[in-house]
Simulated scan of single mutants.
Amino acid sequence: MKIKNLTIKDIGTTIRQNLIWILLFIMVAQACVYMYQNYYVPKQYSAETEVLVNVESDKENLQQEGIRNNIQLINTFSSVLKSERIMEEVAEDIHTEKSPSVLRKNLTMSSDQNSLVFKFNYQSTNEKEVEEISHSYIK
C-alpha cells in the first residue's frame, strides 16, 4: 500500500471540485438554523431594573456605618420584594391571571458584593407583560 503525501495543492483542488456541495451544505444549515430560531423557539423578552438602596441618616459622621447597614439591608429587601404579598400586589396591579408563584419564578434578583445597587430581571414570552410587570414592580 502506497501512501501519498497530502499537499496544499491537493486540498485546494478538492475544495474547488466540491465547492458547490460545500456552499449548498452551508446554505441549508443556515436555513435550518433560521427556521429553528424563528418558528420553533419562543421569543424571550426581558426587562431589567436597578434599585439603589439608600436609607437616610441624620448624622454625617455615621455615613460609613450607614453605608454598611444599607449593604446588609440588600438581602432583606431582596427577600421582601420576592415575597408572596408583594407578588400578589403586582399581579393585582397589572390585572393578570398568573399566580404570584409564576411571577416569582420568572423574576431573578442579583446584587454585586458590597454594593448598594441590586438588580431584578423579569423574563417572559409576552413583551407587554414584561413591560407592565417591571413598571408595576418598581412602584
Rank of each mutant, 00 (worst) to 15 (best):
L23Q: 04
D112V: 06
V55D: 01
Q37R: 15
R104M: 08
I15F: 11
Y34G: 02
P42K: 10
I138L: 14
Y34H: 13
T49H: 07
M109Y: 09
Q72V: 08
V51S: 01
S46M: 08
M1C: 05
L52E: 05
T125W: 01
M1A: 12
S57P: 00
E60Y: 11
T108N: 11
G12P: 00
I22H: 08
K59M: 06
N75S: 15
Y45L: 03
Y39P: 00
E132W: 12
M109V: 14
K139P: 00
Q63V: 07
L6V: 14
Y34T: 07
Q64G: 03
S111G: 06
I133Q: 04
T76S: 11
I22C: 06
A31I: 12
V130K: 09
E56F: 11
Y34M: 11
I71W: 03
N54W: 10
E127G: 00
S83C: 06
F120C: 02
K119D: 01
Q72N: 15
L52Y: 13
Y36E: 05
I22K: 06
I94A: 05
P42V: 01
Y137E: 00
K105T: 07
T96W: 05
N61T: 10
K9H: 10
H135E: 12
V102C: 02
E92N: 15
S124V: 01
M27L: 15
S111A: 15
N121L: 13
I8G: 04
H95F: 07
N18H: 15
F77C: 07
Q64D: 07
I86E: 05
E50F: 10
S136V: 03
T13M: 08
V33T: 14
G66V: 01
T7F: 07
E132I: 02
Y39T: 10
C32H: 06
Q72D: 13
P100K: 06
V51A: 07
D93M: 14
N54L: 14
V80G: 02
C32A: 15
S115Y: 05
A29F: 13
D10F: 01
K139Q: 10
K2I: 12
V51H: 04
L116F: 04
I71M: 14
Y40H: 07
K4C: 01
R104S: 13
I86S: 02
Q37M: 11
K2L: 12
Q17H: 08
S136D: 01
E92G: 12
L6N: 01
S111Y: 03
T125M: 09
K82L: 10
R16W: 07
V51Q: 03
K105R: 13
R16F: 09
F25D: 01
Y40V: 11
Q30T: 09
S110Q: 11
D58Q: 15
S134G: 04
S111K: 11
I3R: 13
Q64L: 12
E88C: 02
Q44T: 13
I26W: 10
T7V: 05
Q123M: 13
Q64Y: 11
T108D: 09
S99T: 12
N69P: 00
M109P: 01
N54I: 03
H95R: 12
N61G: 03
S57W: 05
F25V: 04
P100N: 04
I94E: 02
M35H: 10
L24R: 04
E129N: 04
A91E: 04
